[in-house]
Amino acid sequence: MHVFLDENLPESIARDLTEHAVSSVDREGWKGTRNGTLLALVEQRFDVLVTADSGLSFQNRLFGRRLSVVVLPTNLFPILRDNPLPLLTTLTELESAERRRPCLVRVGWDGRRWRRWLDEEAGLEHELAPAPAFKRLRRSIPTL
């Protein structure tokens, strides 16, 4: 699958997505491109846009798009690096989902996921089977 990482995600998470062709805003030379224009560009060449921008679906009309969008709960590299399974699980399911039917998938910290088909105007969200939960980083407290 062709996966595009949004500008708000660290490009280095691509190392965990070896089964997919991955690109990013920097690699494509699209840095600073507005969301509406970026969506149109991404839609022409990619199957999935991965982002941490939870407002993307509210700020842009996604109905009728030909690509899927995965919204992660964070863009912090240490957390994404240590927790590749929620994204990998979601991409694997999207790859086999009903003829790669375009959808929006929101992934929560606890691994809960919701899907909305982008070819249905009403676009009701349905809960999916959970993916592994994100483990938050624990900061060590120095001893005195």
Rank of each mutant, 00 (worst) to 15 (best):
E43M: 08
K31S: 14
K31H: 10
V42P: 01
G55S: 09
D16V: 02
T37V: 13
G32A: 04
D16W: 15
L17V: 04
D16K: 12
S24F: 02
A14Y: 06
R27H: 10
G55D: 12
Q44P: 06
S54K: 13
G55Y: 07
R34A: 15
S54G: 11
S12Q: 15
D16N: 13
V25P: 00
T37D: 14
E28A: 10
S23N: 12
A21G: 06
V22P: 03
D16I: 00
D26E: 11
A40K: 15
V50P: 04
S54N: 10
T37G: 09
N35E: 11
A21R: 13
D26K: 15
D47W: 08
E28P: 04
V42I: 15
A14P: 03
E11S: 13
W30N: 02
D26P: 00
T18C: 05
V42S: 03
V25S: 14
R27I: 07
A40E: 13
E19S: 15
V42T: 05
V25G: 01
N35M: 05
L38N: 00
A14I: 03
I13T: 09
A14H: 08
S12T: 10
T18G: 13
R15H: 09
L38V: 02
S12L: 12
K31W: 03
L39I: 13
G55C: 05
L17P: 07
R27S: 12
F46W: 13
V48H: 06
A21I: 09
L39R: 00
